[in-house]
Structures are given as structure tokens and as C-alpha cells.
Design a protein around this nucleic acid. Structure first.
Length: 483
RNA sequence: GGCCCUAUCGUCUAACGGCUAGGACGCACGGUUCUCAUCCGUGCAAUCCGGGUUCGAUUCCCGGUGGGGCUGCCA
């Protein structure tokens, strides 16, 4: 039986899940699903100082909102301290790790000296060279201690990355990494290696920023005598300034994007294409389709700039694909936020209104300001009511005769398909021009320079009992504002 | 500074070593039209530089340069 593919997403709860983390999670999820394997969630909460309240909940909630549910976990490293201690002890016993009692002060001084001497900062193995006696004494004292990995010099460490190919390091460059901190917590390096092994992770999928510490991990696997999982380092997500995407670049937390009205499916689709693509000219993919298409060998090597314009395009596409019911559901919070009391109105009306603006939305959060005129009387800018250089008098006359005409049309006929031919015929028969009537009519209805067409607006209002009344009232009000 | 990763339009990217280097976003223009959006069409726009291998290099190799990451008892 072939080995089951197992991937993991291993965030640390130091803040809201950000967009780069989402992409890493997505790739790990896609690969596991594509291979019929398992996707595991592991919380790397080994740094008590940086742990942020609510971050854990946010990570779990966000993954759920994006349908990236884990098959196993979440495991919490903070609950596995005894395990790491045991393995750290094993390394001590095997003499590949050693106790270090150096104080922060000593370490800082050493660091400064090395910088001043222009040599790469590295621990000087001071405590490795302690006499047996001294070590025993210190061990029995209450002096703080850490466990460090003893890295031998002069060795080549080579590993094969699934996206970058072969990567080589010299052990001379590698510091004697702390594995177990003085507070008894493991560092990332120990904890992730131990857990990836214990949890039978077959593929480690993580960001490129981990490449430099991978040789340390390789050394640990070798020291334990464990198999090394396959490694896939993903190209970084970059800001417009080509730096690693971080909080400094504005909105990077997934939560903020969702709150702005980006749809999870759109965000996922967009982010999937940052560093990977299916080699077809198709760009709109559902999560299920991404699962089907995904493979590690299609991952790119170079970092990808996070481009909001393209995200907006994806989001617009997804918004346009929403049906009326979903559109209403997704827009509801934003309508409420805009103080629009839509719940007392007929659902048919509200849906029609939303459908009218659907093709104009890039983000759901824009909906409030877009549809406001349907729920509040417009305020007119007299100049806006004028079509090109048409005299005010003509506009007034046209609007008045149009109002008279609309009076004769039954509300049931307030449908674009019926109203438009009717009105256009009337305009023609009355020897008026389309623009001289329809432009001011549209402005009368919306109060806006740009809006859906007048027939569409009238159809929406036509759903209301007093819809025709509202229409006529607005036309009248507009004519009063002409002078 | 040291180490590592990396390099195709402004951005995301495609191109068994072989056609005028393709698509998408954005931008510009045009069509549909009463405006805007949608939709459709057109256009602008790229192989970082220098060597080498080869009949032929965006592709392979070397060097440079640019960009990025790491260099914590952070992850």
C-alpha cells in the first residue's frame, strides 16, 4: 500500500491569519486533497511572549470560512512540551546537543564583538568546552540553561527541494541552534522536526523564508535517524515594493479582506495563482477545480507581487456570478452598516436593486453607497439634469410630458422589456430626442451622474406598491430643481 | 558584511533548445448605448547584462548586476 500523503499547516498564533499564511495553507490543503491524503493543522505556540489572544480562534475560524478544514488537529505544541524535552534529552545522550548556560549579556557581547570584527555572528561553543565538573555544577545550580545543537564544521548539507531542486549549505555557516529554551519550551526547529516526524508528515510545504534553516532540520533528522519528509518551499508573497508582505503594507490579514467585501472563493482563487498556475489560459477556478489541477511541479520559484487590481477583478467576477439570493445574503451586513433599512421592504425589490448594481461592484462594501438612492430621496444638482446643451425649458417640457405619459402606463407594465419600447415610441411620436428625455429621467430617478438605466430603475421601483408614485414624485421634484 | 533563493510586458504568468514570445489584470481607444458598469473588439507593453555550449538559447552552463530572504532562547 502506498504511503498516505500528509501535509500540515503550522501557523503560530501571533496575530490574525494573513494572506500569505492563507496561501500556504491553501497549497498544503490542495496538495493533500489532490493526492487523496490528509491535511493537518498544528498550532506552533512555543513562544509565549508573542502569543496573541484571539489569534488561535481567528486562524481556525478563517480556515473554516475558506473551507480549508483540517482532517486532523489542531494540535498544540504548547501541550506537547514533555515530548520535545524527551527528544532533546535523546540528543544530549547522543552527544549531538549540549547544555548552554550562557547569559543573554554574554551572548550579546559576543554578538557585538563579532559584528565589530566583521565575522558572521555565531555562538562560540563556549559551553560545549566546559569541563565535566563545571557542567555538573552548573547543571545542579539554578542557572538558566538551554540545549543547543552541536554543529560540526566542514560538512556539506544537501537536500532536494520539490520546487527549487538541489540546495547546498556548508555546516560552517550554521549556528549552534538553540533547541530547547530556558523556559522549557522548544524552538521552532526542534518542535517542527519532532512533530513532522511523529505526525507522519510526508510533505513539508512552507514559505521560502525557511530555506536557510532547513539544513538545521536536516541535521536533526539525521541525528534522530529519521526519514526526511519531502520539502517544498513556496515563493514569497511580495508587497508593491517587492518586500515580503507584512503588516506594514496595509491590509494583510484575511479578516480585513473579508470585512471589505472580498469573497472567500475569489480570494482563494486569486491567491492560488500567486506562485502557481495550471498552465492553461483559464483563471477562474473553484476550490474543487483547484484541487483537481494542483501539483507541486507547477509551483513557481520567484516571489509574486500581491496586486490589488487583479484581486478586485477576481472579486468582481465572483460577485457577478452570485445569484440574487446569495447576493442579498452577502450584501446584507453592508446594507445594514450603511443604515439602509431593507428588511422592512419586499425581498423582491431589494434583490432587484442589488442585481442592478451587481456588475458595478468590485467589493461588497461598496453596495451601501451605490444603492442609496433607492432608499432615500436623491438630492439634485441642477446642472446634472441637463443633457448636453439642451435648454432647461426643453428638459422641463420633456420631463413633464413624460410624467403625463407614465401616468397612463399600468404599474404591471413597469418592466424594462415593456416600458422601454413604450417610452421610446412615445419619445419618437412626440418628436423628442432620447437623450433629452432619458438622461434627465435617469438623473431624476437616481440623482447620480452614473447609474443603471432609467428603465431598469423604474422596473425595480415597479415592484413596490407605491413605486409609480415614487417615480413620478422624483420627476416632479427634479423639474422643481431645474430652476 | 556572510550565506541562500531568484530574474519574461507595470503586475500575475505561458512557451519538448526551434513560427510574428501567448494569455490575464491594469491602461488607452473603439463598438453596443441616455450615463456608468457589464459584454465585445483593437492597441501599447517583456525575455536584466556579458560570456560560453549549440545549426539555433527566454530555455542549458559560468560570471556580473538587480531584487528578495535568513543571519533571535521569533516563527
Amino acid at each position: 500500500m502506498p504511503q498516505e500523503i500528509r501535509t500540515r499547516f503550522a501557523p503560530s498564533p501571533t496575530g490574525l491569519l494573513h494572506i500569505g499564511g492563507l496561501r500556504t495553507a491553501l497549497y498544503a490543503f490542495l496538495f493533500a486533497r489532490n493526492q487523496g491524503g490528509k491535511f493537518i493543522l498544528r498550532i506552533e505556540d512555543t513562544d509565549q511572549k508573542r502569543s496573541v489572544p484571539g489569534a488561535l480562534e481567528n486562524i481556525i475560524q478563517t480556515l473554516a470560512d475558506f473551507s480549508l478544514n483540517a482532517d486532523e488537529g489542531p494540535y498544540h505544541q504548547s501541550e506537547r512540551l514533555e515530548i520535545y524535552k524527551k527528544y532533546a534529552q535523546e540528543l544530549i545522550d547522543k552527544k549531538v546537543a549540549y547544555y548552554c548556560f550562557c547569559t543573554h549579556t554574554r551572548l550579546e557581547e559576543l554578538h557585538e564583538q563579532q559584528i565589530a570584527a566583521k565575522v558572521p555572528p555565531k555562538y562560540d561553543k563556549h559551553c560545549l568546552l566546559l569541563s565535566q565538573e563545571d557542567r555538573e555544577t552548573l547543571l545542579k545550580s539554578d542557572q538558566a540553561r538551554v540545549i543547543r545543537l552541536n554543529i560540526k564544521s566542514g560538512e556539506q548539507i544537501v537536500f532536494t527541494d520539490e520546487v527549487h531542486g538541489e540546495i547546498k549549505f556548508s555546516s560552517d555557516e550554521i549556528d549552534d541552534q538553540v533547541l530547547l529554551k530556558s523556559d522549557g519550551f522548544p524552538t521552532y526547529h526542534l518542535a517542527s522536526v519532532v512533530d513532522d516526524h511523529l505526525m507522519n508528515i510526508t510533505h513539508i510545504i512552507r514559505g521560502d523564508e525557511w530555506i536557510p534553516s532547513t539544513p538545521k532540520h536536516i541535521l536533526l533528522y539525521q541525528a534522530f535517524g529519521w526519514n526526511i519528509p519531502k520539502l517544498a518551499h513556496l515563493p514569497l508573497l511580495l508587497s508593491k515594493t517587492r518586500k515580503k508582505l507584512s503588516k506594514r503594507d496595509g491590509d494583510v490579514s484575511v479578516k480585513e479582506f473579508v470585512e471589505q467585501g472580498y469573497l472567500p472563493d475569489a480570494l482563494l482563487n486569486f491567491v492560488a495563482f500567486l506562485g502557481w498556475n495550471p498552465k492553461t489560459e483559464h483563471e477562474i477556478f473553484s476550490l474543487a477545480e483547484l484541487v483537481k489541477q494542483f501539483s507541486l511541479d507547477k509551483i513557481n520559484k520567484a516571489g509574486a507581487v500581491f496586486d490589488l487590481d487583479k484581486l478586485d477583478w477576481f472579486n468582481g467576477m465572483y460577485i457577478r456570478n452570485l445569484n440574487a439570493k446569495d447576493l442579498l445574503e452577502k450584501c446584507s451586513p453592508y446594507l445594514k452598516k450603511a443604515g439602509i433599512n431593507f428588511e422592512t421592504l419586499s425581498q423582491e425589490f431589494v434583490e432587484k436593486v442589488l442585481l442592478l448594481e451587481q456588475s458595478r461592484l468590485k467589493k461588497l462594501s461598496e453596495i451601501g453607497e451605490r444603492v442609496g438612492y433607492f432608499f432615500r430621496e436623491p438630492v439634485y444638482d441642477p446642472k446634472l439634469l441637463i443633457w448636453k446643451n439642451t435648454p432647461k425649458e426643453t428638459i422641463l417640457k420633456n420631463l413633464n410630458s413624460l410624467a403625463q405619459f407614465l401616468l397612463t402606463v399600468p404599474t404591471e407594465n413597469f418592466k424594462v422589456t415593456e416600458l422601454e419600447p413604450l417610452v421610446k415610441k412615445f419619445i419618437e411620436d412626440s418628436k423628442m430626442k432620447n437623450g433629452e428625455v432619458l438622461w434627465p429621467l435617469r438623473v431624476a430617478l437616481s440623482g447620480l451622474e452614473a447609474s443603471p438605466g432609467p428603465f431598469e430603475i423604474m422596473e425595480a421601483f415597479g415592484v413596490l406598491k407605491n413605486g409609480k408614485e415614487i417615480i413620478l414624485k422624483r420627476i416632479t421634484k427634479a423639474t422643481e430643481n431645474l430652476f
